[in-house]
Structure formats: structure tokens, C-alpha cells
Design a protein around this nucleic acid. Structure first.
Length: 221
DNA sequence: ACGATGATCCGCT
DNA sequence: GCGGATCATCGTG
């Protein structure tokens, strides 16, 4: 029920200021777990991450991942993924939505974490204003596109340093949390790989949907 | 230059 | 559960 142990809580959902490393594990799977419970501060809204997915890189890298944008090497869109860790990789999905990743691998290596859902901790009226009048509180930042919308993250933020204390969008790590794990949402390849992590029981976690293009569960790929 | 394809979302049934 | 919106991106020719 609680995101953090009760003695660490602030405002029912909070986390702690003194535990705020400025880096994230290089391995995208460890980084995704580590980002659960982290606080994302974006343009008047604070939100605690409760769902994230790990993405690797090309076949010759440490985490070959055919589902990653970086799989076929750097392109103009995916260039940030090959840069230094701690940066924001923001991309447009389906022409409309913006999705946010935290680059975790070392400079020159592709590896990142897609932020999929968060609990609005502060600035809920602003998040609601961005999302629209019919959206319920648990859905404000449920889903990667909705999360960016609620926090005011746009493509213009692509490449910013999330650990810059003066940045417009910032990240503060929290205490490590237990994570449930399962397959990633909507990927048509590597669809069985359990690289999606979430905080059990949180209603803000998005629903799992398998890509209709993915092979039948359990088929080799 | 063109066609296929989405790391999605929302509304409808 | 299903399908349409909607267009940038990327690979291919």
C-alpha cells in the first residue's frame, strides 16, 4: 500500500531528501528497479515513479534488445540514448504522445529506462489541468504518454540532464523498493522478456497489453 | 520518394 | 476486447 516504509513517508506518498544519489545503475534492468520510488519533478508537479521498463541496445552491446529504439545503432532520434547517463531521452510515439526515458548506460553505450507511470505527489491541480477535466487522480500519470503530459515534458526536453539541480525536469532517487516484474507493454519483439517493473498493488500502474504483432507467448524469438 | 510501423490513448461495445 | 486517430521516423528503392 505504501510506497515507502512509514517512517520515511512524507505527505502519505513521499520519500526522503537525504537519499538522493546523482547516478543510476548502468544496467537498464537494475536502473529500472532503482527508479521505482524515485521522484520526478517537472514544471510544478512532483511524481513518484511506480512503473518502468528496461531497454537495451544493439547486438554488439552488453544488452542486445531488438525492442529498443537503439537496436540498429544511433539515429538522429535515438542519439541521446548513446550519450552520457542521467539524460532524458524523449521521443514522440504514434504521432501524438511523448514518452520519457532515463539514459543509464555509460557514454557510448545504449541503455535506458522508459518511465511508464507515477503517483502525483504534489501539484495535482496543475497535472489535472494539463490532462483534462475528466481524468481521475490515479490516471493522471498512468501510461508513458500521460506521465509526460501531466509533468509538462515535451520533445524540447530531449537530452537534458535530469540530475542537474537547476534543470526544468529533475530526478531524485529514493530508497530501493521491491518490484514486481513482467513482460514489456506493446513490444512486438522480445515480447516475453520480463523487463517491465512496477510497485505491486498501485492503481497508478498501467495495464499490460501484448503487441498484436508479437509471436505467441512462449514462442522463441 | 514511399510505405510500413509504431515503447499510445481513448472511447465504444 | 477492439479499432481508429494521427504523423514522425526509419529503412528501402
Amino acid at each position: 500500500m505504501n510506497i515507502l516504509p512509514s517512517e520515511r513517508r512524507v505527505n502519505g506518498l513521499g520519500r526522503i531528501a537525504e537519499v538522493s544519489p546523482t547516478n543510476v545503475p548502468a544496467d537498464p534492468r537494475e536502473a529500472a528497479r532503482r527508479l521505482l520510488g524515485a521522484r520526478l519533478l517537472g514544471r510544478g508537479v512532483a511524481a513518484v515513479i511506480v512503473e518502468a521498463e528496461a531497454y537495451g541496445g544493439p547486438v554488439d552491446g552488453p544488452w542486445p534488445d531488438s525492442a529498443a529504439h537503439s537496436f540498429r545503432g544511433p539515429t538522429p532520434r535515438s542519439a541521446v540514448m548513446f550519450g552520457p547517463p542521467g539524460r532524458l531521452y524523449a521521443y514522440r510515439s504514434h504521432g501524438i504522445h511523448v514518452c520519457a526515458n532515463v539514459v543509464c548506460a555509460e557514454d557510448g553505450v545504449a541503455g535506458a529506462v522508459l518511465l511508464r507511470a507515477a503517483v502525483i505527489e504534489d501539484g495535482e491541480p496543475l497535472a489535472a489541468a494539463r490532462r483534462g477535466p475528466t481524468v481521475t487522480p490515479v490516471a493522471l500519470a498512468r501510461g508513458p504518454g500521460n506521465l509526460c503530459s501531466a509533468l509538462g515534458i515535451t520533445l524540447l526536453d530531449n537530452g537534458i540532464d535530469l540530475f542537474d539541480p537547476h534543470g526544468a525536469v529533475r530526478l531524485e532517487l529514493g530508497v530501493p523498493l521491491d518490484a514486481a516484474a513482467g513482460p514489456r507493454v506493446g513490444v512486438s519483439t522480445a515480447a516475453d522478456r520480463p523487463w517491465r517493473y512496477w510497485v505491486s498493488g498501485r492503481p497508478e500502474v498501467s495495464a499490460y497489453r501484448r503487441s498484436p504483432r508479437a509471436p505467441a507467448p512462449g514462442a522463441s524469438d
